[in-house]
């Protein structure tokens, strides 16, 4: 059954990768890569169980945390062309 899940995840990754490669907009690529990250987390977890050694979940955990960072960075770059500005912080509307 883990085999079926692995195959399903690999198919999903292939479709997602296709969307990341063809675009058409940057947001489509970013969406696809973000979704791809979630699928990688799942693949690493499921693969750990598939081989009977579910000890490698640390890596999936890193990705669950770091994938967010990359997506936010690209979004901020889209919006402001500058990563360091404090423009996400002020709050009046």
């Amino acid at each position: 059954m883990f085999v079926a899940a692995t195959i399903a995840l690999l198919i999903t990754m292939a479709l997602t990768l296709w969307r990341a490669l063809v675009g058409p907009t940057q947001f489509d690529r970013l969406l696809a890569v973000n979704s791809f990250g979630t699928k990688t987390v799942l693949l690493i977890a499921v693969y750990g169980f598939l081989t009977g050694r579910p000890d490698f979940l640390d890596i999936a955990l890193v990705y669950a945390l770091i994938n967010f960072l990359g997506t936010i960075a690209v979004l901020k770059f889209f919006e402001q062309d500058d990563l360091g500005s404090g423009q996400y912080q002020e709050d009046d509307y």
Partner: peptide
């Protein structure tokens, strides 16, 4: 290309 490099790294780690 930078966005896709993120995907590249994900696949490499997998």
């Amino acid at each position: 290309a930078v966005i896709l490099l993120g995907a590249y790294s994900l696949i490499a780690a997998g």
